[in-house]
Design a protein around this nucleic acid. Sequence first.
DNA 1: GTATTGACTTCAT
DNA 2: AATGAAGCCAATA
Length: 116
Amino acid sequence: MPNQPSEKVKQIWKTVQAVPFGKVASYGQIADLAGLPGRARLVGKSLGLAPHSMQLPWYRILRSCGQLAFEKGSAQAKKQKRLLQQEEVVVFNNRVKLKDFGWQPDLAEMLMKLEY
DNA sequence: GTATTGACTTCAT
DNA sequence: AATGAAGCCAATA
């Protein structure tokens, strides 16, 4: 059998799915919420591993300053921009205003994550 | 065992 | 604003 995703990776996926429509979060933020402080890079890696079949909203995850993780003009960046704007998120010059669209997890979503 | 890599973050120029 | 170094840590080689 090929490699299975680790528990950490699965926890990251679960956390990413908790990001609501029309909001964005940073890699570091996802790592923290997933109970993995300091694993921002692992978050990026995990998103790359995620199969399309699970419809993971990977495009809602940005760098800490609100910039897209991909180089401006790249095919991936364009696709991410399109997907975000599809959710009423404004992307300008490869960036999103975190002040307007940054996700602030509230109690209800924290509980949902702890649920399982 | 060490070395390198990466969809990162922070601090210093 | 832009760029680079250092810190970071799991996965790979």
